[in-house]
Design a protein around this nucleic acid. Structure first.
Lengths: 208, 208
DNA sequence: CAGGTTAATGACAGTGACTGACAGTTGACA
DNA sequence: TGTCAACTGTCAGTCACTGTCATTAACCTG
């Protein structure tokens, strides 16, 4: 069980996280100072930096959880599935588990708002893409191991993951700029885009 | 022709650029301060910020030129080429033109060193990926126009460009971490990876 | 439960990127 | 050659972030 000290720490951390996301999504990321976040929770600025490595770090706390959940979902896929199929299924079926993971920390609605803020804030978008690159590296190694190939000599693991990542990013972008913000719409969008990959890569697009 | 004032400005700008790249690649990006760059050229820090939007901005000045050159190369492709083929040819054939563009500002060798610095510096890698995303958006619109489809309703332009961008990134990464740093090796690597795309996306990789 | 240990916090000072304001300087051009 | 506009330096200030040290509060042991 949890000691009093640990409980206090957890509460401070969660309060900082919630305050930060609330401020980022309402006032905007750049127009929010670390001092304001700390003040909203009534701790010193120094304390904020003891809980989070930086202003950017808070913004991605929830993202980090979902990424970890996705990697876990891929890891749990049966070995007989082909690589791309495993990625596809992990994404489409793992949705509910990811949603629950999020809800245990912040309201899903806040998470979705934060996602849009990330997409529309250049500094955060850059960080997001770099984090995605890191996740892709993890996935490439994972798939290489599943298939028994060497990730450093065989380019296919990294290629497959890069392509999958690209599809995800296109769906996310489409989702975050469209009207329909239901969490379900990303799933259908991603599935549809994965299906259109082949026709996107071959020949002309104009109907003959 | 150029007025004296313009000549002075251009010289200051190029001096700042060269000094910055030299310092970034030798001492490291984060261990270089803007004050040091300004001091190396004997101007005030304020002047540096009048020529470049920020420390990050200098680091990508040459990159920006190569990206523009690539977009131009794609634009110059004959319309009968299919989208992916146009991207492929623009990249493989446009190499020499890009090289010349670079050489007109800084030694290619410095450009290559800077590239490695970008790949190995988290903050710069993030910025690089965001810039790539912006370029991909430009290319998607370009291809959509070529093919006469609507980029906002037809996902194929963005998908194709995302996949191509993914292949480029994988080759660049492989190149920047390998021994062979000749500028030719990126070409062969990219061509080879594009050829392996199909087999990376379908079925298992393990030889039966 | 008193007293010592350790973790958490606050207060303060300092660095580095960046911006705004204003004054001084130097090319451009009549 | 003198006036105007562009360019530059100086200075002050904001914000993210870090190191240091004293203080507080939880923990644990006798």
């Amino acid at each position: 069980m949890e000691t009093l000290r640990e409980r206090k720490k957890r509460r401070t951390r969660e309060a900082l996280l919630r305050a930060a996301l609330e401020l980022f999504t309402s006032r905007g990321y750049e127009r929010t100072t670390v001092d304001e976040i700390a003040e909203a929770v009534d701790v010193s600025q120094r304390t904020f930096f003891r809980y989070f490595a930086g202003k950017e770090d808070v913004a991605f706390t929830v993202q980090e959880m979902t990424e970890a959940a996705f990697v876990a979902a891929v890891r749990a896929r049966p070995p007989h599935e082909a690589p791309m199929e495993a990625l596809r299924q992990a994404f489409l079926e793992g949705w509910e588990a990811i949603r629950e993971t999020v809800e245990s920390v912040v309201p899903v609605e806040l998470y979705l708002r934060m996602y849009r803020t990330i997409e529309s804030t250049p500094a955060l978008l850059a960080a997001h893409l770099r984090r995605s690159a890191a996740t892709e590296e993890t996935l490439a190694r994972l798939l290489a191991e599943r298939e028994g190939v060497d990730v450093d000599t065989d380019p296919r693991p990294r290629l497959a993951v890069a392509v999958f990542g690209g599809v995800i990013r296109v769906s996310e972008r489409q989702w975050s700029t469209s009207e329909d913000h239901g969490p379900e719409s990303v799933r259908t969008l991603t599935a549809s885009y994965l299906d259109q990959l082949g026709s996107a890569l071959t020949g002309h697009w104009r109907a003959a």
